[in-house]
Design a protein around this nucleic acid. Structure first.
Lengths: 197, 197
DNA sequence: AAGTGTTGCTAACGTGTGTTAGTTGTTTTA
DNA sequence: TAAAACAACTAACACACGTTAGCAACACTT
């Protein structure tokens, strides 16, 4: 009888959630079936339900664990005594590293949250909206201090966050530059722009 | 008997494809059912098949019509006698306007192409890869001419293209800045960067 | 070694899916 | 106005899906 292998401190549920992230990323939440997931885990579909409540529960867990990591980080950054530009850069670097190191979870949280069911859906959307407002507030402070150009802050946030989700393409490309190079390039372009002066 | 209304030069198939774009954008390709689509069109599900071959055909049409518009544009821009930065800006403005004015089709083409079936899938991926290489080539020329900073061109392309897909959030936000403002802000940030000099 | 909870299995249910067949009604053509 | 082409309908099929019930095998405690 095939058992789900676990190492210490990793529950069988964690194994399932992790495999689910990879699967949802690859196929999309709706297109990924519980039978697919079972195969990836090495078990029959019904057996999954000894560890999880439902397919959507997997999505909840993924989306909110990612969202919470970002919320904690912005909590931390807001209180630091550094310039706005430095705050923006720090937040961006965190996003970039999350996308590099926890690719599948972050990607799924970003693209598949639409398939959450209420009340989780509204909750998630709220968190997201608030997070973006706080990000925009940092930028607006920077504009008032003349560190940052006079731009529409929400638009800037939208550009930054979506630009980072492009790391998806980096992950899948065959000729990758290193993670460090990627990070530096993204910061250069997003913060400093394209034009050579 | 409920008939699909058409105006001149718009076939019933076009009506279906357009409604499909809106539906696929809202729910995702997999989650959108033919019965949903039928309801949006105002007809029974089976009736759709008098006009289309299959559900995936709808996705093909959407993806490739969008892809072709971008390919034509880059053909045009490549031959122009302007600086690399100007070419980049022109291409970006085209992307932005496509995203503003043909939101649903562009969005679906961007996010749902994974659900294409071979040989369409490989075909689409190829076109996409080639398009990005041509975009990167423009940037590399700019770098050699010292118009553009020494950055990794593929990374720059990835940032630009994904940043633009963020216009999705603009579409759904309640307090929108105008389309013109959006365009100018995006160009400012993407081409000129964040830092005030 | 016995007992107990855990984790797996098989079988199956109910529902929703894309799609086809066959028919009826409507518009266009001759 | 009759015939031909088109576009809608109802009914149904075959299949894949998420999930549950009931039972068997394993692992750990005492």
């Amino acid at each position: 009888m095939a058992r789900i292998k676990t190492e210490k401190n990793i529950s069988r549920k964690d194994v399932i959630v992790t495999k689910a992230a990879a699967l949802f990323r690859e196929k999309g939440f709706k297109a990924a079936s519980m039978r697919d997931l079972a195969e990836a885990v090495g078990v029959e579909a019904a057996s999954l339900y000894n560890h999880i409540k439902s397919k959507t529960e997997l999505l909840h867990e993924l989306c909110f664990s990612v969202a919470n990591r970002f919320l904690h980080k912005i909590d931390e950054i807001e209180t630091e005594q550094i310039s706005s530009i430095q705050k923006v850069e720090k937040l961006l670097r965190f996003h970039i590293n999350e996308m590099i190191n926890h690719y599948e979870e972050v990607y799924v949280s970003d693209r598949e949250w639409k398939h959450l069911a209420d009340p989780y859906l509204s909750n998630f959307q709220n968190q997201r909206r608030i997070y973006r407002k706080r990000f925009a507030a940092i930028i607006e402070t920077g504009i008032r201090n003349k560190e940052i150009k006079k731009i529409d802050a929400p638009t800037a946030v939208l550009i930054m966050l979506h630009a980072i989700s492009g790391i998806e393409s980096w992950h899948r490309s065959t000729q990758k530059i290193s993670a460090e190079e990627l990070e530096e390039n993204m910061i250069t372009i997003l913060v400093g722009g394209l034009i050579h002066r």
